[in-house]
Computed example of a mutant assay.
Amino acid sequence: MRIIIDADAAPRKVLGICRQAAAQFSLPMITVANFNHRIDSQNHIVVGNAPQEVDMQIMKLALKGDIVVTQDWGLAAMVLGKGAAALSPSGRIFDSTTIDFLLEERELKAKYRRSGGRTKGPTKRTSDDDKNFKKSLYILLKDRSLN
């Protein structure tokens, strides 16, 4: 089991929580980001700036049993298909029963925006997001360490 982080969009607090959890569970933590991001991580992989390059690298790395931290619903769907867990920086645990709905919602919103509509962006991160993320991460870690 490893913690793999889509570090292009992961808040620093999330990186810190993951670092602590990885140390506590004696797990490797891998961060992946393009060369435009400066990430302080022992196991950091730098990729180019092409679209989806970080996602493709994470897909190559992810194995059954890993935990992938990402806010990208498409990447979450792909790693779930490989048997890895997927967790958003806000603490949402993605699972196979809800991911199809999320992907459909994403497509509908993108279609709406392409036709000139406007949708709301993400809300400002709060300390509750950090608490929810930590709680969900530890749920996944404990659940996966029992298997």
Results as ranks from 00 to 15, higher is better:
M1I: 09
A7R: 00
D8L: 10
A9Y: 09
K13R: 14
G16M: 07
A22G: 05
A23E: 13
L27G: 03
T31H: 02
V32T: 00
H37D: 08
I39P: 07
D40W: 10
D40A: 15
S41D: 10
Q42K: 14
N43V: 01
N43C: 05
I45R: 02
G48H: 03
N49H: 13
A50N: 09
P51L: 03
Q52S: 13
V54Q: 05
L61W: 03
L63Y: 08
I67E: 00
V68R: 08
V69E: 09
Q71K: 12
D72R: 13
W73E: 15
A77K: 03
A85M: 02
L87A: 01
L87W: 00
S88L: 02
S88H: 01
P89E: 01
G91R: 06
I93S: 04
F94C: 03
F94Y: 15
S96T: 14
S96I: 07
F101N: 14
E104Y: 02
E105F: 12
R106P: 07
E107P: 01
K109W: 05
K111F: 14
Y112W: 14
Y112D: 08
G116D: 12
G117V: 11
R118G: 11
G121E: 10
G121T: 09
P122V: 12
R125H: 13
R125Q: 09
S127P: 06
D129S: 10
D130Q: 05
S136Y: 08
S136I: 09
D143E: 13
L146W: 11
N147E: 12
